[in-house]
Nucleic acid binder design. Structure first.
Lengths: 152, 152
DNA sequence: GATTAATAGATGTTATGACATTAAATGTAG
DNA sequence: CTACATTTAATGTCATAACATCTATTAATC
């Protein structure tokens, strides 16, 4: 369904306005769809995002501030997000030897296992994207990168 | 800056995964940038979204449920959003003659005025999008529409 | 026409987000 | 070394989001 039909608006000021609305609308749609997967595992999108970052570290400890830098939504309160993961034994926290202000975070076996359970569903979900070609996906990615460059 | 650099991840499972992450990241960036405009006027993105929908109605009353349908983020609690606008005299609420369950909402002069004040800033912001061509913007929009079609 | 289902919107509750502040550790300049 | 600024993470507070429930009204079914 076109964005026009979806939000019942048939006139836009410009192609740029339509794109801006479509971006936000599509992103909300995407996050909502992923949330439907995650909620079976009692985690939020943000918690999943942190877990993925931790797994990406390959068991190397990572500081809270570094997690924040890698997050999709940087306004999140990373400290409290990590608290949630700790409470579920999905991550563990140790003090950083080099810098006693910092805190090192590592994913646990339990956390890795949870991601392994979720992976097939996320993969299946992403595979539905092949309604467009990989080249088209790359084209969009490249143009989005360019859009954000207009910022300073 | 490429999404790779932005979230410090240099490998993606597929072009589709990169696109999914880029979409969410870019949408957050976009919403954050708009918020910077709106906060000078003491409204949130959601409240702005509702005001725009009301203005689009050209003074014709619109039901709360219809506002929800047109919103970019439909998980919002429209009822309470309208409350906020009422409290600021940006909208008014009358009971709907045809259906006593429903509530008609209309933008006030004050609401229209506020949008008029904000317009130039939003327009200027959107004009920076011309770092890509209108054709490219349309291409992305079309592909995003297609992506959402994969949903059922 | 009575009964049940569906719809519209408001409200209660809990969790999360946004933003400021704090505390501790580290870095830096005199 | 001392004083001050900066960094890192945690916490406090308030607003909003998420989700369920409730009330009033309308629609549908028997």
């Amino acid at each position: 369904m076109s964005i026009e039909t979806d939000i019942k608006q048939n006139k836009f000021r410009s192609a740029y306005q339509r794109l801006a609305l479509n971006l936000v609308y599509t992103s909300n749609w995407l996050e909502y769809k992923q949330l439907e997967i995650f909620k079976h595992y009692d985690i939020t999108s943000q918690q999943y995002n942190v877990l993925r970052i931790l797994r990406g570290q390959q068991m190397n400890p990572i500081k809270v501030s570094d997690i924040t830098e890698r997050m999709l939504d940087r306004n999140s309160n990373t400290s409290r997000l990590v608290d949630k993961l700790l409470a579920k034994n999905l991550a563990k926290r140790t003090s950083c030897p080099n810098d006693r202000r910092a805190v090192d975070v590592v994913i646990t076996e339990e956390g890795l296992q949870l991601l392994t359970e979720i992976d097939p569903f996320v993969n299946a979900w992403e595979e539905r994207f092949n309604i467009i070609t990989p080249e088209e996906a790359d084209t969009i990615s490249g143009l989005l990168d360019k859009l954000r460059e207009s910022d300073q």
